[in-house]
Computed example of a mutant assay.
Amino acid sequence: MADPREINPFLKLSLDIGPIVLFFAAYIKLKDRMFTIGGTEYEGFIVVTACFIPLILASTAILWKLTGKLSQMQVITAILITVMGGLSVWFNDERFFKMKPTMIYLLFAAVLGFGLLRGQSYLKLVMEEMMPLEYEGWMILTRRLTGFFFGLALLNEVIWRNFSTEHWVYFKTFGLTAAVFIFFITQGGVMRRHGIEEDDGA
């Protein structure tokens, strides 16, 4: 893999959230329409999901081409979107795609939890450059994030099983994104107490 390269942060943000925004906009436009493809009727949600898969793969490929690197989270997310989205399209069943956030959050929680059982913070491996912390700080943040991911997985199950597809799309687009943002904002105390000041000469 090529050496990591920096790109414009606004471009990176566009590649990260652009496909999600386009998915939401396309769903709002097509949610009440039915499409007949190959003699089979598909709801707008399924058609939008089918279009979302190559879009997220293209966005991920462009990001890798520009930066020379991808995080494990980006790779796993792209794989699960392809697999679960593909199953939804193949079986014409939206439930597979709705379960995708549950699987992602359970997987991340399980990996972090496994690290905690070994006395390690796997979160540190992927975020150390972004926010240098002492060992205890990483362990606290990892424990909290593990519980948070389990909570999001449970919440996604409650939403998609008990509410309409439209409610789930709003929850997925705005609710989960806001929840992750709020979580890290509220961890400022841990970062202040356990943060490591970088050497200016480094």
Score class of each variant (00 low, 15 high):
140 I>F: 01
103 M>N: 04
73 M>R: 12
84 M>Y: 02
140 I>T: 00
132 P>W: 01
86 G>Q: 08
139 M>N: 00
142 T>A: 06
135 Y>K: 05
150 F>A: 09
98 K>G: 04
113 G>N: 06
85 G>S: 08
68 G>H: 03
97 F>T: 08
123 L>V: 04
154 L>Y: 07
70 L>F: 09
87 L>M: 13
136 E>A: 13
108 F>P: 00
138 W>T: 03
142 T>F: 01
149 F>G: 03
63 L>F: 05
82 T>L: 15
136 E>D: 12
88 S>H: 00
112 L>W: 15
89 V>P: 03
68 G>V: 12
73 M>H: 09
109 A>G: 08
103 M>D: 04
156 N>M: 08
134 E>I: 01
65 K>D: 09
130 M>L: 07
121 S>P: 10
146 T>F: 07
100 K>E: 13
67 T>Q: 09
100 K>I: 06
153 A>G: 09
85 G>C: 10
158 V>W: 15
86 G>D: 05
83 V>E: 07
144 R>P: 01
144 R>L: 06
128 E>P: 09
144 R>Y: 01
83 V>N: 09
141 L>I: 06
123 L>A: 11
105 Y>P: 15
89 V>R: 05
71 S>L: 04
158 V>A: 05
120 Q>K: 14
64 W>L: 15
101 P>T: 02
104 I>F: 08
63 L>E: 06
155 L>V: 11
62 I>T: 13
90 W>L: 10
123 L>E: 08
98 K>S: 07
127 M>P: 06
145 L>M: 13
85 G>E: 11
79 I>R: 00
93 D>S: 05
66 L>E: 09
103 M>F: 15
131 M>K: 14
126 V>C: 11
108 F>T: 01
154 L>F: 12
101 P>G: 00
145 L>I: 14
106 L>T: 04
148 F>G: 09
130 M>E: 14
131 M>P: 01
84 M>S: 07
112 L>V: 11
159 I>A: 03
126 V>R: 04
69 K>N: 13
130 M>R: 12
124 K>Q: 12
117 L>P: 12
156 N>F: 02
117 L>Q: 08
106 L>W: 15
103 M>L: 14
71 S>W: 08
94 E>Y: 05
84 M>Q: 11
156 N>V: 06
152 L>V: 12
73 M>Q: 15
86 G>W: 06
145 L>P: 01
157 E>A: 12
94 E>P: 05
112 L>F: 15
118 R>V: 13
155 L>G: 08
94 E>G: 03
118 R>M: 15
89 V>W: 01
82 T>S: 15
155 L>D: 03
97 F>P: 02
106 L>Y: 14
69 K>A: 11
143 R>A: 10
132 P>A: 06
68 G>T: 03
120 Q>S: 13
92 N>S: 04
116 L>V: 08
64 W>R: 10
68 G>I: 02
75 V>C: 11
113 G>P: 07
117 L>R: 12
157 E>M: 14
109 A>S: 14
152 L>Q: 04
